[in-house]
Amino acid sequence: MFEYLITNYNYMVVVFLMMMGLWAMIAKKNLVKKCIGLVIFQTGIILFYISMGAKNNSTIPIIDPKYGEAAINYANPLTQILMLTAIVVGVATLGVGLMLVQRIYKEYGSINEDRILEKFK
């Protein structure tokens, strides 16, 4: 069991990052911290995809005469390309989120969830 965890440590890191992000999104009262949690969560997923495409003793997925044309010598390019798209999506989400936080701050003078809720009463 312990050996299994050691050899798959990348997935442990991914799970740890995702749980950390999820906790920040749910439990933190500060809206900016919620945004940070969102980014950590997405980073966890990005690492998950990247590590599933990685191989031992392989190089970046551009054909190089030194390594020949066998696919085993190259990391899986598909996951990397998917994650480029996911990074763009993540940046857009973060941008919209921060824009909302900024406008909330202008309107209510606080970015703490409890204080904003007090102002509604």
């Binding site: 809206l31 969102l38 997923i45 998950f48 995809y49 909330i104």
Partner: peptide, 25 residues
């Protein structure tokens, strides 16, 4: 209160989309 409602939706919605992405992974 639309701004605050939107922020909640953003957090929940992104969580949902990330779960979907994870499942596809």
């Amino acid at each position: 209160r639309a701004l605050v409602a939107t922020f909640n939706y953003l957090i929940m919605g992104s969580m949902g989309a990330c779960f979907y992405l994870l499942g596809v992974g």
